[in-house]
Design a protein around this nucleic acid. Structure first.
Length: 147
DNA sequence: GTTCTAACA
DNA sequence: TGTTAGAA
């Protein structure tokens, strides 16, 4: 796939929006609740030029679904929202960390999906530089340090 | 037919 | 929070 195509699809997803009725029906949260959550500042509809109707981004729909799940598990709305913020930052940290690490994967067995992931350099106090590898092979998955 | 706000249950 | 009214 060309990067242009990938970008176009990314744009498409970014611009996807669904109305309150459908969100309510799909996620199982009443429209009343959605408007209430908005008033409390937990969710925000897409800034729409033709004001009058709420439209939610895909990301917001996922947030709504997450909050709904937490609510079903007994958390309060406030607690559910705090938790959503927590997973949001942690995901972001994860992405930032792995983004630069997973570029180098060597396949050692295509059929069995074995390989070695270059996780980057290890800077030890003795000044030595070593490579950290994530290995997936017949022994499972584990780390290995290469000289 | 859908969504809006506001108000009452 | 559900539901309903009346308007857009």
């Amino acid at each position: 796939m060309t990067t242009n195509k990938a970008k176009a699809i990314h744009e498409l997803f970014k611009n996807l929006a669904i109305g309150i009725g459908e969100v309510s029906k799909i996620v199982g949260v009443s429209q009343r609740q959605l408007r209430y959550w908005e008033k409390k500042g937990y969710i925000k509809p897409i800034d729409d030029e033709n004001a009058g109707v709420r439209r939610y981004s895909l990301a917001t729909v996922y947030l709504i679904a997450f909050i709904k799940d937490q609510l079903d598990e007994g958390y309060t709305l406030a607690a559910a929202y705090e938790k959503s913020k927590d997973v949001r930052v942690k995901s972001k940290i994860s992405r930032k960390f792995f983004k630069h690490s997973f570029s180098n994967i060597t396949v050692t067995d295509y059929d069995k999906a074995y390989g070695e992931i270059d996780l980057g350099e290890i800077h030890s106090k003795d000044g030595e530089s070593r490579q950290l590898k994530g290995i997936v092979d017949e022994n499972g998955s584990y780390y290995r340090i290469d000289e």
